[in-house]
Amino acid sequence: MFRLKREFISLTAFAAFLIVLPLLMPNAYFLDVATKTIINAIVCVGLNLLLGYAGQISLGHAAFFALGGYATAVLGSRLSVPAPLAMLAGAVLVGVISYVIGRALLHLRGHYLAMATLGFGAIVSIILNRELAITGGPDGMPVGPFQIAGYSLPSALGGYVLAAVGLFIAVKLATSLINTRAGRALRAINDSEIAAATLGIEVAAFKVKVFVISAIFASIAGSIFAHADRFITPVEANFLRSVEFVAMVVIGGLGSVVGAIVGAIIFTLLPQMFAHFEEFRHVLTGALLICIMAFMPSGVVPTLASLWVRWTEPAAREKGSVHGAA
């Protein structure tokens, strides 16, 4: 009961924050950065379920992101399918693909999923670059605004609202998944697959489910990105994009929804902050990645959370690490 109440309060506060945020943005540029951050956060909240709870690595989530974006671009803008339907079609396509990959590989132990998703991502990226007639090739293609029955919000704000609604739903789904039997099963799998299997948890089936869910989150985020940016290019399917998503989750802190969002914020804002040192942007980002992992191997949020506990409640130290509810 207490937990439900706390969860309700955090979710309400989070919704209020998302509503107030655009009012605090001084100009369209900042609003755009906020929108991009939120879109990355949607991918991270999904990917965190896979990395932090199911303990599996995907190096191809950018491909799912791009497939969602291109479904919206090709179906929605070129073939005039209504935007929500195009988004749904992308999600279904990505769901089927990730189910097939996951079914084939997730009963194996080790990093087979990482290798297969890397390969899959590279293939998607090559196809998007080569099929000029459908995708516009390396130059990409324009995308229309998100319309429902012919109505749409003004361009920049429309992108923000779509992204914010998407993130809120993603967070709600992720927290309710984590706090149910399925979530406990996932945590058990992450701790020890053998112990989880002994307890009657169908390890492979759970991993496949989480992989599919995280891929669909990425696909929806990709569709939102296409509407918000009004443009999409194959760069979104890049291997480095996939690695960025994983880096965001790990930097924020595995196994924490807040961590996934914080990771997305840090990683999206960094390049903007280094914008004055355009030439040294990648050097600085690389150095920062190394430093965060060297000094906070469990990620920013869990490290700060345990420091906070140590500061405020010395007695709670024996209880070990804290797991945030939201």
Binding site: R281, L289, M293
Partner: peptide, 30 residues
Amino acid sequence: IISRMRRPSTLSIIIVTVGISMFLRGAAEA
């Protein structure tokens, strides 16, 4: 870097080697 990581996990090592690669590539670019 790599040998000094505390409690390294597969993921954190992957991120560190990605960081090293970004750093070296970025240095060459700059």
